[in-house]
Computed example of a mutant assay.
Amino acid sequence: MKAAVLKSLGTPLVIEDVPAPVLGTGEVIVDVVATRVLSYMNEVFSGERNYALDLPVVPGPGGIGRVRAIGPDATKLAIGDWVFCDPTVRSRDDAVAPDIALQGLTAAGPGGMKLQKHFRHGSFAEQMRVPTENVKRLGEITTVEAARWCALGTMLVPYGGFLAAGLKPGETVLVSGATGNFGSAAVAVALAMGAACVVAPGRNETILADLVRRFGPRVRPVKLSGNETDDREQMKRAAPGPIDCVFDIMPPSVSPTVVRAAIMTVRAYGRVVLMGGVGMAGGAGLELPYPWIMRNCVTIHGVWMYPPDAAVRLIALVRAELLRLDEYEVTAFDLDHANEAIDHAAANGGPFRMTVIRP
């Protein structure tokens, strides 16, 4: 089969024929129809992000496709089913604290690297092998619609954060990083989950205005000045009442002071979700006042990805039309032009923009 292969960091993907995946027990083979390209894939492939990758590798985190072959433990899946391939692969021998690898992207710790050695190849290929539990049925869609369904992979990240925080209908949320690709998805997901209001801080007034245009007055934009104290007060004033939950998804390039200003808007007994990249590229880490956390009974959730059943729940939100995939503007490339797709994603990674590869 044809695949795009990363053979060494800092070199382009090589498009070549590789052996087709072989089905094992507890696995499913999927014909990949569409797969998203992360806006920072170029930084992963250059080595700038220091992601753990066992090279050579067929990259690509998850995708949309049709079931080609199933093992004996699959009782609901059928050949030809449209499915979402969840890239979050978990070890099966520790239900309390499983090791995790992101198939086709990275791994955490020695256990995650062990997982990656088996489930290392991702979706930049005509076929991929996926753990049975990571294959989520979509119902009937068309080949044209498959590209837009790739947005599940982006929306699942903030959805996992809000699930961890126990977001309830009627609450007020602040999304730190609302003008980015994952942050704008967080705005949409929070509203779909019933948030009464989403405070959306940022420096790009055009993007902030577009969020209000898309979602209406439940979005309260805040133009950041760069002054930590002033920005914190502006964000508080923008909310109709106390802020119940702060969600941070800022990239590694952002100063910790910007993140801290947002976090410290949360009310007493409120919750904070950290899913961003502060400190991942070196430099200062996030410093929060111990007395403020303790005396205000603030709960801080560090969240990497989402629980195993999150994709099924999110698909249900889309099917109920509470979450709209047609917000996304999609640009598609074929597999032969995977390197061009990587460049395009890096240059066009804004809110509700998505680059996909169609193997």
Rank of each mutant, 00 (worst) to 15 (best):
L23P: 07
R218F: 05
V18C: 05
G283L: 02
P19Y: 09
H121L: 06
F84I: 12
G111L: 06
E16F: 01
R267W: 07
R218T: 11
T172Y: 07
L77S: 04
F352L: 14
R218K: 08
D248P: 03
T75W: 00
Q234F: 03
V44P: 08
M235E: 15
A4W: 15
I357S: 07
G202Y: 03
N181K: 09
D326E: 05
M113D: 11
Y51G: 06
F162I: 07
A238W: 07
P217Y: 10
L274M: 14
A196I: 13
C245T: 10
L115T: 03
V246Y: 11
E329V: 04
S176R: 06
L77P: 15
G226Q: 04
D210F: 09
V135S: 03
E329K: 04
C245S: 10
G65W: 02
G302K: 00
G24R: 15
K2R: 10
A178V: 11
V96N: 13
V37T: 10
T75M: 04
T179A: 13
D244W: 03
R120M: 10
T132A: 14
I79F: 07
E233F: 01
A125K: 01
G109R: 01
P19D: 13
G350I: 04
N227R: 05
Q234V: 00
R358S: 10
M41P: 02
P169V: 11
T88N: 14
R36A: 12
L23I: 02
T106R: 06
G80C: 04
S184C: 02
R137T: 14
M264N: 08
E171D: 08
E327L: 15
G216T: 10
Y40F: 11
R353Y: 05
F119G: 04
S255E: 14
C245L: 13
P131S: 12
K223P: 00
M155D: 01
F247L: 14
F162C: 12
R36Q: 11
G270V: 00
T75V: 08
G183K: 08
E145L: 03
P12S: 08
K7H: 12
P72A: 06
L335D: 13
A3N: 00
E171I: 04
V212P: 05
V157W: 05
G282Q: 02
D81L: 01
L53W: 12
M155I: 02
R220F: 01
N296S: 15
L288D: 12
K117S: 12
Q116A: 15
G109P: 11
G349M: 03
R66E: 04
R92C: 06
K114V: 03
V5C: 11
A284W: 09
P291Q: 03
A345K: 00
A147K: 01
Y40N: 11
L174V: 06
C85W: 04
I243K: 13
K168A: 14
A310D: 03
T106H: 13
V318A: 10
S225E: 12
V258P: 00
A95K: 11
A69E: 15
V57G: 04
